[in-house]
Design a protein around this nucleic acid. Sequence first.
DNA 1: GACAAGTATGCAGTATACTACATAGTTTAA
DNA 2: TTAAACTATGTAGTATACTGCATACTTGTC
Lengths: 122, 122
Amino acid sequence: MKLISQLSKETGIPIGTIRFYEKSGLISGQTKKEVTTNNYVYYDEETVEKLRFIQMSKAVGFTLAEIKEVIDAWYKKQLTKKAKIDVLNKKLLQIEEKMKELRAVKKQIAICKHNIEHEMEP
Amino acid sequence: MKLISQLSKETGIPIGTIRFYEKSGLISGQTKKEVTTNNYVYYDEETVEKLRFIQMSKAVGFTLAEIKEVIDAWYKKQLTKKAKIDVLNKKLLQIEEKMKELRAVKKQIAICKHNIEHEMEP
DNA sequence: GACAAGTATGCAGTATACTACATAGTTTAA
DNA sequence: TTAAACTATGTAGTATACTGCATACTTGTC
């Protein structure tokens, strides 16, 4: 079990941002009932995985709301099996779309680079 | 030569957003000097290409500032050949990084889906 | 036991990317 | 020729995702 500063160290995500994610319902830790002197929140390894997932998903253009959908499909007990599968299938389609767009952007930049390399300089 | 509403129709980008992009220096149209009764701005086919590039780049997580760097490398005359190539190479690396992240997210979601499909429902 | 460092809470402020609205002038179709 | 539709400009407001600050309590170290 880790405290928030260790979570931050392991993922590189600022403490303030982690708190923001917790407030947004993306992650959640728990206080230890046996400790009564403070209300420090402890996080498990799963939270680290979630944070890494959030980092990557954000990098490829997913919003926190979209990421939350997936995390809920993964971890929330109250959703039906069908609802979860539907969410995940939708995400997989979005990912295919992003892959296409990424390849298109790459191609465009490669062409641009080629043109610049072969153009005559004044 | 197209007016802004046609640009919007062709790309699906709202007029307000196109104006915002122009104000941000991502695209630019020109007024026709021979027309003196108004100051309507006309855009060429290149602008449509730029807008499509912006759409795709945004979808895969690039910011407008990052996209502007590439567009400037493409179209601005005042940058040196070396500066342009440097920007484009940096972008190509970022794209490779995003491809990795996209594959990792896809894999994670596929595993998640598999687990849900094979779990016992209560 | 003092004091730096860590933690929790809440609220205000910032950056990015729009989005809406008001105003005013222009073009076009009936 | 008049009304609908289009255009330009400017300003304000919104959503998302943080980021910083103030306050207060707790823990660990010398």
